[in-house]
Design a protein around this nucleic acid. Structure first.
Lengths: 253, 253
DNA sequence: ATCATAGTCGTCTGCTTGACGATAAACAGG
DNA sequence: CCTGTTTATCGTCAAGCAGACGACTATGAT
């Protein structure tokens, strides 16, 4: 068939971000409050249009930096100070997903360590970390605290659920859970990440044996810390290994 | 920021298909020969523009049917006769990936059993199954057989490689390998699928123990066949289980 | 001094895997 | 008919890993 510019319809292309972190033993996602219709006043995932000369990954990294101050951490190369893992998640293109026009959104998944401050780009009250459980469980209605009582805008609940599921399954067979930790961390901190993401309790002794026994997963830095209380714990850095073999098994139950 | 139609650039959105099957012990992909520039005469993945009122999965299923006569098999619901597994793979949007204009392509992965005939939509010689190894190993140059000597058009080599890697890893922990088999198949046929996709030899006895011992993976139909020669083998159908736990381990080496 | 908290090292038991022997049931060819 | 070849299927054994859990260590809090 010949190449004819009128033969295909124009689309707007956006990137939406599922940014996850672990706060106070809970898996949390970044949400922004919408300032205009549609879904005005509702919470949504951060995101924006892809520019005309921009790659998809670049657009996602730009939005991430604008929203959080985090820099995407390319697996190769040294990690910057405020580094986050960033990967493409999936693409959503239902013709009716945006009532205004045809929008195809390329969702990305970002994993970040617990940040000192939410660092809103603009209005501080319009962006927040919220437990993913709260964001996904919302039914249409009024809540007692007057916050977060409506489901996420657009199809963002589905996108968030897909992102959470990706994170849950990927930490099973990769070292991705370290992306939730600061540069140096203890085995216990890493375990609490797994527990928060999976929503289960893990045996500290078996977990310790597993992660320290997997070659290339963790490298000791030599230091220790007592920031979690109790006996001082060894500090580790993420090793070069990206694939866990055999994987860390998620308890069924 | 206000909603302004001029604030974002228009994109063309396409779907590209990585359609895989197993033929004569080799993992093969569907390739079409391009009739027009750019990359005229080169092989490429099948694909096309997403229509204005069409979902991405719908567009992929339509292209798949046009190109192969296969119908996408939604995990829920009964499998049609010519059923193929279809899932979204990833999205490619480098600004320079198509020299004509800005095109974002949502690649999909389809897995099909060995088909009686390639069933080209148009010109029979312009579409063919080719071993993925051949398609990916192509260097720029001339081959002895005068065929398939150039790399795939656009960034399709990368897309194909990503699709193959997805298939290779996904059959480890899911029952997806059955998508390469006809409705009824033997343990040996399923093993040959794994061997072709992974490019390794598996021990028939251990493989048999593993797949027949995993509850919900295979259900016996009662029949037997000798179509592979040798002793008659039991026929099975794919069971309801989609996740293999524990997974089938891919030999390292 | 005592307790609570977290971290780390071991032990034991059962399951899974990988290597491989042995048997069974078909077909091909002499 | 007999024999070799091919494929399927069952069994055995040892090594490795995971889950359950006891024991001990090193901190800070009371």
């Amino acid at each position: 068939m010949p190449y004819d510019p009128s033969a295909f319809p124009p689309f707007a292309v956006t990137v939406d971000l599922v940014v996850l972190t672990v706060q106070r033993h809970a898996l949390c996602a970044l949400a922004v409050r919408r300032g205009e219709p549609p879904y005005q006043g509702r919470w949504a995932l951060p995101g924006g249009f892809v520019r005309g000369d921009e790659d998809l990954a670049t657009a996602a990294a730009r939005e991430l930096a604008e929203e959080t101050g985090l820099h995407a951490h390319d697996p190769a190369g040294p990690a910057p100070v405020n580094a986050a893992h960033l990967e493409q998640l999936a693409t959503y293109g239902d013709p009716k997903r945006d009532p205004r026009m045809r929008v195809v959104s390329v969702a990305h998944l970002a994993l970040a360590p617990d940040l000192p401050a939410p660092r809103a780009g603009g209005d501080a009250r319009s962006v927040r970390w919220a437990p993913v459980e709260d964001l996904l469980d919302q039914e249409d209605g009024y809540g007692r605290d007057g916050e977060l009582t409506a489901p996420l805008a657009f199809d963002h609940a589905r996108i968030l659920a897909d992102g959470v599921e990706r994170a849950r399954s990927k930490i099973e067979y990769s070292s991705l859970a370290t992306a939730f930790c600061p540069q140096e961390f203890t085995v216990g901190e890493l375990r609490r990440v797994y527990e928060a993401v999976w929503g289960v309790a893990l045996d500290p002794r078996n977990f310790h044996r597993k992660v320290t026994g997997t070659p290339g997963f963790l490298v000791p830095t030599g230091g220790t810390t007592t920031r979690q209380g109790g006996r001082p714990a060894q500090l580790f850095r993420a090793g070069g290994a990206t694939l866990l073999n055999p994987p860390m098994l998620r308890p069924e139950a």
